[in-house]
């Protein structure tokens, strides 16, 4: 049966409208839930830098939100380490700063959120500072969060995530075993120069006596290089803030 052109066009238009309405309706209904899911995921990633994945896994979404609001406080700073409270007249909070969008701007115009992990004691009892990371892997974006202890030098933990690294190779940066390699490493050398932590080429070597190197991932050197560049550049962006904090704790320590 051969239909007329008018019939085909009418059919197509009606179908498009129905499917379009269906999809936009779904998106409207599910939108708030999706936003919540994304916010929760971000909190999980931030917490992942300071507590273990198993602990997070064991918590319900409500518990995570509760834990986050109790133990994490946050500020936003600029490249000079000065606190920023509003951006072009709009108040900013660390949770709403889009790292990926900021990544596209020149470094000195970006907003840099800092998440502060508090001890049980409350706001004066800082356990570590968590900084977001963002960069490029082999195929697509990689990002994460790194926690520095209060000496502003020792890595307390790191979470890494990726958009499209090769499964089994570069995608292994999300594995706990790989991320644990960073714990206890130092980001500044003895003279106070930022050297960050380098993931080396090849796998299976012992770098436990070198505070600035970690074992690599076999077959994923480009992803590892991406992680290295990301760490170095973002720690560099936060250097002013880090220096200020470490000098103030040094004074407090005297």
């Amino acid at each position: 049966m051969q239909q007329s052109n008018a019939y085909i066009i009418t059919f197509s238009v009606i179908l498009t409208v129905i499917l379009g309405l269906l999809l936009s309706g779904t998106s409207q209904v599910l939108g708030p839930m999706q936003k919540e899911a994304i916010a929760l995921d971000k909190k999980k990633q931030i917490l992942g830098a300071v507590i273990s994945a198993e602990e997070i896994e064991a918590m319900t979404p409500a518990q995570i939100n509760d834990y986050y609001s109790k133990r994490i406080s946050s500020i936003v700073v600029d490249i000079n380490g000065k606190e920023v409270t509003e951006d072009a007249g709009v108040p900013v909070t660390a949770e709403t700063v889009d790292i990926a969008k900021n990544y596209k701007k020149p470094a000195d115009q970006r907003l840099f959120p800092v998440f502060i992990f508090l001890g049980e004691g409350g706001s004066d009892d800082v356990e570590s500072y968590i900084f977001p990371l963002y960069g490029a892997g082999l195929w697509d974006a990689i990002w994460g969060f790194i926690a520095l202890d209060t000496d502003m030098n020792t890595v307390g933990g790191i979470t890494l995530a990726h958009a499209g690294e090769t499964p089994g190779l570069g995608a292994r940066i999300t594995e706990g075993g790989v991320q644990e390699r960073y714990v206890g490493k130092k980001v500044f050398d003895e003279s106070g120069k930022l050297v960050a932590v380098q993931m080396m080429k090849g796998e299976g070597k012992d770098y436990s006596d070198d505070p600035h190197k970690v074992d690599g991932m076999s077959g994923a050197t480009i992803t590892a290089n991406g992680v290295n560049t990301m760490l170095k550049s973002y720690l560099g962006h936060y250097e002013a803030f880090i220096k200020e904090k470490s000098s103030s704790t040094a004074v407090a320590g005297l």
């Binding site: 779904t26 599910l30 999706q34 899911a37």
Partner: peptide
């Protein structure tokens, strides 16, 4: 797209 949206909302 429906499946994908549902997953995004309920199993992120």
């Amino acid at each position: 797209t429906l499946v994908s949206e549902l997953l995004k909302a309920f199993a992120y």
